[in-house]
Nucleic acid binder design. Structure first.
Lengths: 208, 208
DNA sequence: ACATTGTTTAACCATAAGGTCAAAGATAAT
DNA sequence: ATTATCTTTGACCTTATGGTTAAACAATGT
């Protein structure tokens, strides 16, 4: 593979990423991708045989990028509290730089859940689960967090970080009316979300 | 308009709703809709001139259904705490019965934000905002919630309720691994979410 | 210089998809 | 019964779209 090859293939891949991110698998047109990459449509099919294959390539790269961002939670050597602060800071910042990823991924996975199963095959959730529990055993006990509450907690944290991007169109529409800038909101959110979660945890009267 | 008319038109509308909900605007095929309604494709165009018009009709009805569910928060005569519990119970229950709505709406609004602006034109956000503030003035003071924290609070609540449905494909994929049923998770979530939010609020050390 | 291999293009193909039309069936009004 | 109106259909049209092909064009090796 020569240098030129790589350049063309990369240009195609980048153009495809852009179009798919904007229009989704169904809405994307091969012609648009070719145009954006400044090449002939046939050349698309030369590098990536079909639309599906091209999409697959793009989707896997994007999804990998997103999910890998969750990884540090499992190995950073921080207290639970610091981990929560770290997560919201890092994750929201990352999404500020890649705001279209969540909507794209959620939509494509809902449209075709098999895609996600495929991604998950490489990861052993249970192992991570147990690791987390071990890392923060004392803290979980101190905060009175039982084993079966962890899914609720984790999904709450993910929701608070990702949902604003998934519902960006709605949020921006509403914020417009009250003169609030989406990015300012997000900057605030890093701290607010962390504080909010930590406060909820610190209030120990959890069980019924 | 005779009785038969109405039946046909309704059958078309229902079929269209089903297909759009599943495939989205771009993925839906007029032929599929016709088939599902057991009619000729030309008849679709007789009742709803174009795909866009048909989609518009379906979208508006669905979106109205969803957003109207938020209304009770603004007029129910409950304490802030009870309102939070009421909201999570009602809203999650509603979405359990209509699980495809969030992903559909979020996707279509992101794909075409103008749609949402149009929906919002009928609503005066600021008025609701002020009403809420007035209704819960003392509680907001007691909880030390400042004016500019309200967007963060409201979006947090919405996120916790809606996100599991928007990310259903992912959640179910993960839950599968840890033997957790999505609906059980949702049933738990009604209480967990309310408790979580209330606990966060009750912990008064909010400002920096 | 020549063959080989890899890259790019213009022209083309088949089909799927949204949409139209003229005519046949119903229904109701006079 | 006849006309007028509304509903439904099968056949058809046009365009957009994913995909193919044969040939031109490079680059590389011998």
């Amino acid at each position: 593979m020569t240098e030129t090859d790589k350049q063309t293939e990369e240009r195609i891949f980048d153009a495809a990423t852009d179009v798919f991110l904007d229009k989704g698998m169904d809405g994307a047109r091969m012609q648009d991708i070719a145009n954006r990459a400044n090449i002939n449509k046939a050349l698309l099919h030369y590098y990536y045989r079909t639309k599906d294959k091209l999409f697959e390539a793009v989707f896997e790269k994007i999804a990998g990028k997103v999910f890998s961002r969750f990884a540090p939670i499992f190995d950073e050597n921080l207290s639970l509290e610091d981990k929560i602060r770290f997560f919201f800071n890092e994750h929201i910042s990352f999404l500020q730089n890649n705001p279209r990823l969540p909507a794209f991924i959620l939509n494509e996975i809902n449209r075709n859940p098999a895609r996600f199963r495929k991604l998950m095959n490489n990861i052993d959730i249970n192992k991570l689960w147990i690791m987390l529990e071990k890392q923060h055993k004392e803290e979980l006990a101190a905060y009175n967090i039982s084993r079966d509450m962890i899914p609720q907690l984790m999904t709450t944290i993910a929701s608070m970080s990702v949902f604003p991007f998934a519902a960006r169109g709605i949020f921006e529409g509403i914020f417009e009316r009250i003169d609030l800038d989406f990015n300012d909101y997000l900057d605030d959110r890093k701290k607010f979300a962390a504080d909010f979660v930590i406060k909820a945890l610190k209030n120990r009267e959890i069980g019924e």
